[in-house]
Amino acid sequence: MKSTALDARRITPLARARRWLTPLAWLALLLLSAGMGQLEWLFRLIEPDVRAVVYRRSGFFALLGQHILVVGVASLLAVVLGVGAAIAVTRPAGRDFLPLVSQLASIGQTFPPVAVLALAVPVLGFGTLPIIVALLLYGLLPIVRNTLAGIGSIPAEVHEAARGMGMTAGQVLRQVELPLAAPVILAGIRTSVTINIATAALGATVGASNLGDPIITGIVNGNTAYIVQGAVLIGLLALAVDSGFERLLRRG
């Protein structure tokens, strides 16, 4: 009995590393692709007639970095605000706001991000800020919804026992509610981040430079090679992040 448990623990590091293979593979592919400036001959096949077939206004690594930064900042804020709000309205003191917040969360989901962006620009001007705000607002919703669902799905008797055993409200939250809701919350964050990786490309239309730039420029100039370059990188980034989340989720 005991020895098998120990054996299992011994092989874990290797097994764990192997389980991260898929996300790491996507990541490697992503980094390789960011060096696709070298593949000029390939894109020449797509667009034989135009002068420039590789987007050169900024390096792909810089664009990728910008993209990750924008999504990262927006997602971090969305997690803090979204999880925080959902926790607040499931406490006795905030329970009055629960219907309001959960309603907002479900209505907001149906709101297209382009519309959020269109509304944000007049207020915040062009640049990185409006896209962060748009991503934050749009990304908030799956997180709030999932956190509410996760906390709400904890069986009443578990709550009853936790309180009855003499756990403080903070202990119930940290040791019972959050760990039990974690997979659902994480799934919400996953949805939010992956959607936002794609949505962030819209930032290029309001002057935030990221992987959306080649796509928008490509559309404007009718250059399919540019579009492919942006799209491939965004797709690979989304895949790498998404499979990373999948890995995290399956561990539980």
């Binding site: 069986p155 008797e157 578990v158 709550h159 009853e160 026992a161 936790a162 309180r163 009855g164 055993m165 003499g166 756990m167 403080t168 019972v176 039990l180």
Partner: peptide, 18 residues
């Protein structure tokens, strides 16, 4: 909280932490 830690409590559905 102090009171409850001094009193054992058992319920039908056990309420064990899964």
């Amino acid at each position: 909280v102090t009171l409850r830690r001094r009193i054992g409590y058992v319920i039908q559905s056990t309420g064990l932490f899964p």
